[in-house]
Amino acid sequence: MPAPLRRLASALAVLATAGALVWGLMLLSPVDPARQILLAQGDPAPAPAEVDATRHELGLDRSYPEQYARWLTAAVRGDFGTSWRTGDPVAAELAGRLPATIRLTLVALLFATAVALALALPGLERPGGPADVFARGLVFGGSALPVFAVGVVLLEFVVVGAGIGRVVADGTWSGALLPALPLALGIGAEWARVLRGGLRDALGAPHSETARARGAGRLRILALHGLPHAAAPFLTVAAMSAGGLLAGAAVVETLFTWPGIGRLLITSIDAGDLPVVQAIVLLGVVAFLAANLLAETLTAAIDPRRREKR
């Protein structure tokens, strides 16, 4: 099997297992889904017969493997059942919230890239020099700073205190600039650390020396030798940070009342709305797997040595 297909297959296998675990959350929950749905749809005291009918309709009287299979096939089609809180389809709730979160995370990732480059590049010219030490200090401090504290500072001091930006976020691109900042800082610092290491290794390697001896300029060496080499470790770490994005988005969205899935997730956890939690969690896992798959594929495309082996 060619390597890209093999990577896809193993990602799908992991996803299926993760899906089983996410579905299994239902078993951990002490709540009866059928009753919960009837309650959410406005029936204040569902009769036992009604509950049994809904139970049958939902397939909850079948065996566990059957239930999982039904849940999974529905989930693949985008059907995550009914919200226990609102009685609406989960998919509709998500669809309304997803674009705002995508906007927020894209802006945050853009910021993070800018932060990473701004902190990694200045110190390269003279490792151990003042610019390098300063940037490394910022990287170290930035990665130890809690997202929520930065968020509170921005919200309470900048938005409320100084009146810059909006208190109630609307989920638009321009509204994403401020909430994206706390999300981007920690990620950017981590990226800068890896980028700096990768670039230093690449620019100190004999092949960069060869390029210098042949008269190549600094920028040319940075762009053609440095960045491609730094890309592999950078992409790996960048993909890893996709795993923390959901929790980060939850913090920022809750703080800034951003109408995205992060805030919906926290609302749903508080309300015990398990179907919505399941859907968002699965989305988080899919995003993480996709990011890793993408990073692996790109890394293999950049490095001919990886293209053949494995």
Binding site: L21, G243, G244, A247, V277, I280, V281, G284, F288
Partner: peptide, 11 residues
């Protein structure tokens, strides 16, 4: 393959 914080949110 399961991000730590996502698992925590799920639990």
């Amino acid at each position: 393959a399961l991000p730590q914080t996502v698992v925590a949110l799920a639990v």
